[in-house]
Write a protein that binds this DNA or RNA. Structure first.
Lengths: 210, 210, 210, 210
DNA sequence: TATGAATGAGAGTTCATTCAT
DNA sequence: GATGAATGAACTCTCATTCAT
């Protein structure tokens, strides 16, 4: 969203260059607490505690609690779409595209676990807020992407002809993202491994193939 | 004014049934609002507005906001387990059991949509609260039930031998219940129809079988 | 305050004749609860519970919580002054007057324990309320009565000449009435016995006389 | 801004002492209002008004209204028992002990008037609350202390042989402490003067000695 | 950069009171 | 006489936010 700090003369109240490391740290802390307790239930004081400072001090770094949430979500979505776009640009066949997208998604869950969980939980409530209109935009883009892949897959015989496309879309979408609620980075399964297993279930089912 | 039920056409033969009806109405309203905005973000005033009364009036019927949540969740879980237990008592083969459980689940989503959505969203935060310890109990029972069915299915050849049981359990669990977030009763698909489609994807995959 | 029901045609909402027994019962209950928990801390519902009815039902008998308090206090004060006036009319010597007044007071504590405790605790807060102006009146009358007796006693040599009259008045007043906070009717000491012991301490001191 | 106490004339050498001072101020204010209107009847807004701040601001300094009450009472009792213990350690004869204890009590009324009045009024209601169990403890210790002194006094001939010890204890206890309800610091009588007069009445009675 | 103290807008809850039945 | 349901004002407490230092 910001094409890198090439304009050092800008004089924003909120320093975007002064201590980016501290900002990132604080955002990571905030994301974790938000994810664990929910955005509303999380007090700004709790975040500050976790960061070893007082509540008021956070306002030197951020305009508001909402702007923290905003930054966390945009950070995640920018990253996610960069990966998705790379996959779509390569444009392999439908089955390979699904595989690549699901794998990319699990990698994002691995990198941005808290943000993903947060996104899952808060996204619906935030829909009406103009500041978060990009969430609806992303959702739309996401839906188009998946519906397109599924439609092409059915047309080309990669996927079953009797598939209810919209239902299958929801099935895929939910199935992948809820994983953020139980996934813990550094566990026994790597994101790629989980992706592989999920894909095998989704593509071929849990019943044995003849 | 009514000298006991001598007039069977009277609308309220048993006046002591009137109160529970009002309670149920209010709980339904509360569940909807909770599900839409989240438990924390929902004010007791909002529920009262929706019910056409003042905030304080709710306290004639309920002890607290929390006790409303409690009643909503127990109402749903009691109902759910009655159905599950019926299925488990019948004890058909693993594939039929999965089919029956998933179908029962979608029927519950149909009957208790708000409660299910609420359960999905709030259950994790409520874990630590002793009052809601039954949530953890239910979760445990649920997990045992599914792991058992899957294990038996793999052993008997009903399910693929290479299945990661725990992963498959999570996959099934999440896949079914998140549907509550988008399902709207009275839509184009009946719960049974959705269950059928989900089961076909879960059991046989989205890729065509040879 | 009401010279007995000689006007049966009166049509008050609050029936003063209909069921005087029930009223008295309810007032006794209210007085007890008020005395135990304090007027403010006592909910109208608590009184109703104790009386075996619902909160709203009390309003058939009384206009308000405050009017219950009012009736309790006037009932006590009317009774008290009837006794005091009898003593003052007899007008014996100062030492005998003190004896008679203190004995009468302990008898009132015995008969109206709850009302006395209530009076002790709430009287100061009620001072500003016009409805309870009779409390200040009573207090004034009370003070004059005691100061008069003490003054006469000092002048006549019945009491010590070096007595600080105002201090002695407060000493006597408080000493007697706080007993309501621990006195329980039906205990080992009769009111007369307690009065006798108190008088012996007050008049002659706890140190032995030569 | 102040590089440690190099400037002894600075008004706040130890900035960490500033906060306790504010707390003490606020507690004094709260105690006064509590004493005047009663704990229950006192709103937190009233205290805040009196302190020149908003109700919510009090919660920066205190956890709850109850914790203010708690601090006020413990502050008083700690102080009181320090004095009493000093008297008991010196352990003079019974008559001198009574004199010392009563004098100490009046001094405490002088220093903690509001707290004493509060203690008198609220102590009974607080008995059941575990947080205030120290009130019952103090009461017990207090009773033992007085009963002991009186018993020794009677045994040694310092007090009348016909004294009902328990009754005399209550008499002394109440007599002294109710004074808090009318005592105003800075009046015509010093605490020591009031103590002297009270003692003369209690020890030798109001009737003249032969 | 961070603190300490305060603000002000609500939140959940309580309770005396009303009133149709 | 009493009930059940509701009102509405007030209460304690929470929390995002501000700002002088």
């Amino acid at each position: 969203m910001n094409d890198n700090g090439t304009v050092p003369t800008s004089k924003k109240t909120t320093p975007d260059k002064a201590a980016p490391a501290r900002r990132a740290e604080l955002l990571a802390t905030a994301a974790q607490v938000f994810a664990e307790h929910g955005y509303r239930a999380t007090t700004v004081r709790r975040i500050a505690d976790e960061a070893g400072m007082l509540a008021g001090s956070l306002y030197y770094h951020f305009d508001s609690k909402e702007s923290m949430l905003d930054e966390i979500l945009t950070g995640f979505l920018d990253d996610l779409w960069a990966r998705y776009d790379a996959v779509l640009t390569a444009a392999p066949g439908p089955r390979e595209t699904v595989t690549a997208l699901v794998t990319a998604s699990f990698r994002e869950i691995d990198r941005h676990r808290a943000a993903v969980a947060l996104y899952q939980k808060e996204s619906p409530h935030l829909a009406g807020n103009p500041r978060f209109s990009y969430l609806a935009d992303s959702r739309r883009k996401f839906e188009e992407m998946w519906l397109g892949v599924l439609r092409r897959g059915v047309a080309g015989g990669d996927f079953r002809a009797d598939l209810d496309i919209r239902l299958a879309y929801r099935f895929l979408r939910d199935t992948v993202w809820v994983a953020a609620s139980w996934y813990r980075p550094g566990g026994t399964h790597s994101p790629e491994e989980i992706a592989r297993q999920y894909l095998s279930m989704v593509l071929d089912g849990i019943a044995p193939r003849p």
